[in-house]
Design a protein around this nucleic acid. Structure first.
Lengths: 205, 205
DNA sequence: CGACTACTTGAAAAGAGTCAATTCACGTGG
DNA sequence: CCACGTGAATTGACTCTTTTCAAGTAGTCG
């Protein structure tokens, strides 16, 4: 159950794992300004990490799925908000002796860095269709359900929009268009069947 | 000369610094697929790190200025290209004993991660004007020239466009508009005088 | 069944991209 | 020192995409 998805974070066997915490959908895990330091590993559910802008807009930096570790900060203070997309269980990871673990942590931080760069590419060099396509491929890969051709989306259209730098309406329209083109089927709003993976790939940068 | 800009990377006094390498504008520093592992510190000039897409488009992930360290990779292989924007001198940093340094490296990696997230915010939640404004503020801050009100841009309009996820024409038009609005003055194409920092800030997310 | 929220759809407006034509800046050679 | 050529940058006209604003529909939970 804890096994990481294909390119998810490594296992962190050297970290002492603390107690498990549970959250309901929408619960705050941490907020901007909080004292940083703690790392979390997702046991169940999905976490979103985001920034809030003065005018209320939101940029979701990452979704974290089971097995993945999040909570890195450059300084002593949080610069992001994190909350539960759905019902979430987390394991607390508290670094024991700094030195011996930093090597493990470095690997994890670099994984996060790679993700961030991939995300930047998605947002910077794709039109709306390309971004949604990239998003579906990313989620599918991380759910390890590429073989099953069915993806479930734990997050709302608004979450997807805020992740991709689009509006909710545009995301909705792209889903509709993909359905009309026969690329996907929408079993329900939160459940996508992919009929043509290759066409999704062709849409991404 | 080596002193880092305000929020630039830390000094890395514990890393062994190797010989200095020099590059002319446009020279490749490393390419996608190269063996990773080496880190570099910029002594002179500016480096761009980017990805190339199948159709030839380019997403610049970062510009690195004097004092900054770059070259982190999650795996053993490079996923990016790096080349010299102008005349560049680099110091090679070769980690000696893995364990004792990873703590230093972790800090640097987290700095890169923060930068990547800032960049994502810029690209994901700003219109063209906002992106260019954010870009100018970022460069000014990293050049430490905020007090002088003058910025020089070592990179071309195309570089800026590829960094911000825009076209060269749009970048050019934004510069023109900022000039017409009296926010900046263009001493030359590569030299910007900022007349109203506050107005630049108001344009960013 | 009703109320609330999430999602979808439509029409109009704004923004950015594309294509094409100048203009500008700079280095080279006459 | 000037003329020319080259690549970079700007500008213009037009198209296409996305956003915005406004309804409308579908689910869901009481």
């Amino acid at each position: 159950m804890f096994d990481a998805a294909p390119h998810a974070a490594s296992r962190m066997d050297t970290l002492l794992s603390g107690p498990a915490l549970t959250f309901s959908a929408g619960d705050e895990i941490y907020a901007e300004g909080d004292r940083a330091g703690t790392l979390y590993q997702v046991a169940v559910g999905v976490v979103r990490v985001y920034r809030l802008l003065a005018d209320g807009r939101r940029q979701i930096c990452a979704f974290h799925m089971p097995g993945e570790i999040f909570g890195f900060e450059a300084g002593t203070e949080r610069h992001f908000f994190a909350d539960a997309v759905n019902t979430v269980a987390l394991k607390l990871l508290r670094p024991g002796s700094e030195a011996e673990l930093s090597q493990e942590l470095l690997k994890l931080a670099l994984t996060s860095l790679t993700r961030a760069h991939d995300h930047l590419l998605t947002v910077g060099r794709n039109d709306a269709s390309g971004r949604v396509a990239a998003f579906l491929l990313e989620i599918a890969e991380r759910q390890g359900t590429r073989d099953v051709d069915s993806i479930d989306l734990p997050m709302s259209r608004l979450d997807i929009a805020d992740y991709l730098g689009l509006t909710i309406e545009t995301v909705s329209r792209v889903f509709t268009r993909l359905r009309e083109q026969g690329v996907i089927r929408l079993a329900s709003t939160r459940h996508v069947d992919v009929l043509h993976w290759d066409q999704l790939e062709d849409m991404t940068a």
